[in-house]
């Protein structure tokens, strides 16, 4: 089952994209985008995983124990921060879209009105 984490990544990307394409509500669309982004967390953590690796916290383990890749975990943290900021900005835009167009349905946003 060593390909399972990678299949989860592909599944999350496609699931999220399907949600984005068929979305009828901008808030739902933002959440679908974060599903797509969460696939990158799984990918980064899967790449950083080491068989029999411990968490990279050397409080009660020897400094030479095999650990999972801490660089990938640090990158995942960066990724989560970016995801949070993107969601916040898009939700703010959603509030503005509702005020301007009176709807949060992407199909009803008229590009000529903006």
């Amino acid at each position: 089952m060593s390909v399972l984490p990678y299949l989860v990544v592909a599944w999350l990307v496609l699931c999220g994209l399907y949600g984005i394409v068929t979305s009828r509500n901008l808030v739902h669309l933002v959440i679908c985008l974060s599903v797509v982004q969460s696939s990158t967390y799984v990918l980064l953590l899967a790449i950083g995983y080491r068989k029999h690796g411990l968490a990279p916290i050397f409080v009660d383990i020897s400094p030479h124990s095999p650990v999972v890749d801490p660089v990938m975990q640090a990158l995942t943290l960066t990724d989560i921060v970016v995801e949070a900021t993107v969601s916040a900005l898009l939700l703010a835009l959603t509030v503005q879209a509702k005020k301007r167009f009176g709807s949060v349905d992407p199909a009803e946003l008229d590009p000529l009105k903006g």
């Binding site: 390909v3 990678y6 995983y49 030479h64 650990v67 890749d69 801490p70």
Partner: peptide, 22 residues
Amino acid sequence: LTGLPDFGVEIGHLGTRIAHAA
């Protein structure tokens, strides 16, 4: 994704080196 190294295999030595240097 199938071109990636197997799950759980060490890819490069950077991560382990930094972890053990901390």
